[in-house]
């Protein structure tokens, strides 16, 4: 019975809850939250990255008692937050280049160590382009050295700042301006992909996790956990982009949720290279439900659609479900009958 007392109508999923202890409230439900990325930024309506960044950095600020420095890769997040003469950041923040955020953060961490200020922690952040592509070398170096940096990738699955071009994180069949939805195999090709969380794990760093803007509790818990650990940590956050995905601005969180619930974006955490926790799918959906509201996948549907590609994407989701054990076995079978 005592466990039932813990039940709240929205306890596990909504941002806040008037009924739970103050101490258990997520950062984002507090008026006192850091608002590290404050109002007046120039992100598009419904920007998932703006949301993800505030979620993550506010949580890190809370975990470090405000002793935090952020390093930012070039990209949407940097451009929309700091166009002269205004910045939306409220913590010490440095932007250097597109591809060097991890290395700059290493420098910051090294300086703090040299100065005996190891209580001040360092976060590096960037988009998927800055992380899986151009910034990959420095990131891998930072991992390998196990520098005391939490690197957060806000993955919106393409180069959005430059006008929606394919990145190493662009999913198969997605239309971008360098993978047009033309020809027999429209959109991005079905490549091997570049699964950075797995690559990060292969470095054996102490903490790797994935998250989305659809599950704030999970995201905050992971950031806070990451901040309890010293060494290189990697957090990969899925942040839908209404502009690049061709989705409605109000559906940003919904799409992130469907990405998880379809199995296309597994949410898990790993310590020292081993997966230690996986977020189970709560309401399994077919990939179609996730893909359909996105214009970047519009060519898969309709009279001239590509059911073969759709099936191939479903197969990816099914593989994820099996690999990460995203569903309890019975449920998974039932849904695939």
């Amino acid at each position: 019975m005592s466990t039932q007392l813990k039940f709240y109508q929205v306890g596990s999923f909504a941002v806040g809850n008037r009924l739970i202890d103050e101490a258990d409230l997520p950062e984002q439900s507090r008026s006192s939250r850091a608002n590290s990325l404050t109002s007046g930024h120039r992100a598009c309506q419904g920007c998932g990255e703006a949301l993800g960044a505030r979620y993550a950095i506010d949580a890190a600020m809370a975990a470090t008692n405000g002793k935090l420095v952020a390093v930012n890769a070039t990209g949407c997040l940097e451009v929309f937050s700091t166009p002269y003469p205004e910045t939306s950041w409220r913590l010490p923040w440095l932007h250097s280049l597109f591809g060097n955020a991890a290395a700059v953060a290493t420098g910051v961490a090294a300086a703090l160590r040299a100065q005996g200020k190891s209580d001040i922690r360092v976060v590096a952040q960037g988009g998927d382009g800055g992380t899986v592509d151009i910034g990959f070398g420095p990131l891998s170096g930072m991992f390998e050295r196990n520098d005391d940096v939490l690197y957060i990738c806000y993955d919106n699955e393409a180069y959005m700042n430059t006008g929606v071009q394919r990145s190493g994180a662009t999913p198969p069949a997605a239309r971008t301006n360098t993978t047009h939805a033309i020809g027999p195999n429209p959109g991005a090709s079905f490549t091997q992909g570049k699964n950075l969380p797995l690559i990060a794990m292969a470095h054996g760093i102490p903490y790797v996790a994935t998250a989305t803007v659809a599950d704030l509790h999970d995201l905050e818990a992971k950031v806070k956990k990451a901040m309890t650990i010293r060494g290189a940590r990697y957090l990969h956050v899925l942040v839908p982009c209404p502009l690049g995905w061709g989705s409605r601005s109000e559906e940003t969180i919904k799409l992130a949720r469907l990405a998880t619930e379809s199995g296309l974006f597994p949410v898990f955490e790993a310590e020292d290279g081993e997966v230690t926790a996986t977020k189970k799918i709560r309401r399994l959906v077919q990939v179609e439900e996730y893909l359909k509201p996105q214009k970047r996948f519009a060519h898969l549907f309709g009279a001239h659609g590509h059911p073969d590609l759709l099936n191939a994407i479903q197969a990816i989701a099914d593989r994820n479900i099996a690999k990460y054990k995203l569903c309890d076995p019975i449920e998974a079978e039932a849904d695939h009958e």
């Binding site: 806040g16 008037r18 439900s29 992100a43 920007c47 505030r54």
Partner: peptide, 17 residues
């Protein structure tokens, strides 16, 4: 019912409690 969702999910911090 005071779930704070609007307060939390606004990308522009435009909800005030």
């Amino acid at each position: 019912f005071s779930c704070d969702n609007c307060f939390g999910v606004c990308p522009d911090n435009a909800v005030v409690k």
